[in-house]
Amino acid sequence: MLSRVADNLYWFSRYVRRAENVARLVEVGSQLQLDLPRAARFAWRPLVDTLGAGEEFDRWHGEGATPSEAEVVRFMLVEPDNPLSLRGVVGNAREILRTVRETMPQDCWVAINDLHLYIEAGAERAGSRRHRHEFLARVIDSCLRVSALLSTNVSRDIGYQFLRLGAAIEQADMTSRIIDAAAAGLIQPRAAEDVEAFRAMQWMSVLQSLAAYQMYRRHLRQRVSVELALQFLLKDREFPRSVLFCLARIQAILPQMPPRRPVQQAFRRSLGLVFDADPAKLAASGPCDFMDRLQVELAALHGAIHESYFVG
């Protein structure tokens, strides 16, 4: 397996997973906004930060201005000047696939190319509330289709391990970023005393954005609280988008790859951090600092993978 090809497979998988998460996040934001009473408004900015597009966003509409919901959504989904938009992410996945087409199933190219063409052609629909649901559902479906094609049609060779690794790291990272956004406050009540009242609603929508609400209810059988939501998203051993589950998946992948000490070390640091995390404390003090640390560790793990396998 060429280092360049492994690198491309890894990033292809990351981008597809990222696109799916972004679409879910915007979908839930859009739904939540419809449920909010007049006394509160939905804060889009933390979601923009989730994409790491905060600076881009400020440059784009000017710091301090209050862009409309349609503008923000447009920026996140289809703005050509925003390389971190959904459109940019899918475009990246497609460009990468062009370079490794000979190693991937043909159907995969067809699926990504169709999605790319759909986004290019339907960019305007994404802004309008009426069509947004349809647009996002199609994006999520296409991403899941690609994931399914990979898991059903690709031989379990070393290349496949890099696809799995990319998806696992991306999901761990996205989950931590989405928690971060929620902690920053997605719902801004006009009166300060209403903060508590909206808190549960906010975490419920976060669980929904990670397709985790139903599983949460089934497994925890309790109303949503910050502590339990954190417990579930960070440390649940069975839910596939929880950070711990993603790390366990990485733990299963690493022995199938050429052993590299820096990767092992970085992995153990990420795992230790999540393992030691106490959801009750995080709920009380606010999880933002912890999530920042987690993202730094995940970035270090990515760096170690990059240095060990992709530089060659």
Partner: peptide, 20 residues
């Protein structure tokens, strides 16, 4: 691609792979 290959001091051509 060109970047995937290099020639070592032993005048032998190598591919950069995930195994080395």
């Amino acid at each position: 691609e060109g970047g995937d290959l290099f020639v070592g001091d032993d005048d032998v051509c190598y591919m950069r792979t995930v195994y080395g």
